[in-house]
Write a protein that binds this DNA or RNA. Structure first.
Lengths: 228, 228
DNA sequence: ATATTCTTGTAACATTTTGTTCATATCCAT
DNA sequence: ATGGATATGAACAAAATGTTACAAGAATAT
């Protein structure tokens, strides 16, 4: 699923440049020109951002202030915040981090560095919430990318693992073919539809007896049922 | 993982106020109204605190006394202790620090200051807890950059060591290529992608038989598994 | 300061692993 | 039974990693 980055930045040039680049990296973006609007958008349940880029120099509400407010709201208390500012002073950095920001980038910054920090922060947030799957026969460790069936370790490729992960995360419901293609292959995938079948087949094969965990739902997609 | 702060304080008002504020900062808290209970809770393996706030003026066991005891127990000898007291005399401060306290805050204190000191102390503790790695075949001493494989000392360069350190620290998870590049080479590294492979190869080579500790996870990165 | 050795990054090429497509077989709902 | 959907195996294409050699830059010794 695509992640949304909320950009709270009053300088339209910077905001647009960030938006353009984030989109190219596959993120969705939302822009707020003021702290007030930023707060409103951050708390909007319909578009909960995965990460917030916050400029410290805002008209109206101060960045620090905003950050503190975000940390107080249950909905956003754990949302990663990366601060963006011209102030290079170390004291500001510490103040920012104590206010609950996850990282801090000083203008002018290279987009590449910002992106690296974003990735690092998202990764951290992700690992913290990575619950692993396990039943009597199958064990899946998402962080370590390890799978074991009946005690035997199974080596999966990236795609295979991503596929299994998607299936497990939608456990109980049917994962539509299109949904799997979107999530595992990306929105812009246009290849042969058979590709999905082939990967499912390899997954089932590698999982051996546990391959039966994956049911075909003809005309719709696949469903992960535990291994009983 | 959420960190736990043990509050040893007989004044219920202060204890509750601290608890409320710590929770708001994302910590778990445990309160002990007496030195004896504090010692018991500190040594309880199920809830080992990350940090202890210790009031010096306690009924029963004296704060200094308690601090000395904490320092004698293996389980708590390295747990940061911040002392809390009304006595502003410099001599007390020195006595407290000599007893093994990590910091000292005088009442009445601002919560903000206390929190800043807590963070500083926790940060320090974290860096120092460079617990060294060691299994039946491989030994790594992070403090002085020494590595030994099967008893033979191995000499690593800085980059090699940094790489190994990163791998070991992410043990249990896959260390993504990008993550390793970010951590070892820095966020703004722009070089050839083969660089990482080359260094991994050199590392594996120098580690000899222990080189197998580092598994390739194609498409993602590398994984450090112990040497079995 | 100069020479020497060690580190590190890069390039070029080899090898391995992974992903995709295609052709054919099998399954499934109607 | 039949047409659309999925399974399967093999071949091929593409991507990722491993390997080696070399040169520039640091660090160290002389």
């Amino acid at each position: 699923m695509r992640q949304t980055i909320l950009i709270i930045e009053d300088d339209a040039d910077i905001a647009e440049s960030l938006e353009y680049n984030f989109k190219r990296e596959g993120f969705q973006t939302v822009i707020a020109e003021s702290g007030e609007k930023g707060l409103r958008l951050a708390l909007d349940e319909k578009s909960t951002p995965s990460l917030i880029i916050l400029d410290l120099m805002l008209p109206g509400m101060n960045g620090m202030e905003l950050c503190r407010k975000l940390r107080r709201e249950p909905l956003t208390e754990k949302t990663p915040v990366i601060m963006l500012t011209a102030k290079a002073a170390e004291s500001d950095k510490i103040a920012g981090l104590e206010m609950g920001a996850d990282d801090y980038v000083v203008k002018p910054f290279s987009f590449k560095e910002l992106m690296a920090r974003i990735r690092a922060v998202l990764r951290r947030a992700e690992t913290e919430s990575a619950a692993n799957y396990s039943d009597n026969h199958l064990t899946v460790d998402f962080g370590d990318m390890r799978v074991a069936c009946e005690g035997n370790s199974v080596k999966l490729t990236r795609k295979e693992f991503a596929l299994l992960e998607n299936l497990i995360r939608t456990m109980g419901r049917v994962a539509a073919r299109q949904q799997l293609l979107d999530n595992v292959w990306g929105y812009s995938y246009f290849g042969d539809t058979r590709t999905l079948d082939v990967h499912i087949r390899r997954l089932r094969q590698k999982l051996g007896e546990c391959g039966a965990c994956i049911e075909t739902v003809v005309g719709v997609g696949y469903r992960f049922i535990g291994c009983q």
